[in-house]
């Protein structure tokens, strides 16, 4: 049973990258391009993990985390945020928003996969 990951990023490049990296790691990937899109896909994607960018149009990562945590579906799924900043303030903000962890961009394949494994039972 492979892990289902819902990956959310407004950048096509990042999405393709995530798709490639995660598929190669043996995960099932569903892509979404912003927070609202991710919420739309959530019921069907039924992810074991959500991986989300923070800065996105329509609904950003914080909005998505908030909506997921307050929602009925997948409310307790681990959520990792993708961020280019490693600044502590951002981590705190992500954490208090309900994120499980973070991945600093640019990431390499190994760190992405190992971080995902850290927060999931895979």
């Amino acid at each position: 049973m492979s892990l289902r990951v819902l990956a959310v990023d407004d950048s096509l490049t990042m999405r393709e990258m995530l798709r490639q990296t995660l598929s190669e790691a043996g995960f099932n990937v569903v892509l979404a391009e912003d927070g609202l899109d991710a919420l739309d896909r959530l019921p069907e994607a039924d992810p074991d993990l959500i991986l989300t960018d923070l800065n996105m149009p329509r609904m950003d990562g914080f909005g998505l985390i908030d909506a997921v945590r307050k929602g009925e579906i997948s409310a307790r799924v681990p959520i990792l945020v993708l961020t280019t900043e490693s600044a502590a303030t951002l981590k705190d903000k992500a954490r208090s928003a309900g994120a499980t962890g973070w991945i600093t961009k640019p990431f390499d394949e190994k760190s992405l996969v190992s971080t995902i494994r850290r927060v999931t039972a895979m």
């Binding site: 049973m1 892990l3 099932n28 892509l31 391009e33 069907e44 997948s74 799924v77 039972a121």
Partner: peptide, 24 residues
């Protein structure tokens, strides 16, 4: 029990349909 423990073992959850895999 946490969702992370429960969901991967739940049966019948297949791959998301391919058509759902891209935003547009």
């Amino acid at each position: 029990p946490s969702p992370a423990e429960v969901s991967p073992t739940a049966p019948g959850k297949g791959v998301a349909p391919a058509s759902n895999n891209g935003p547009r």
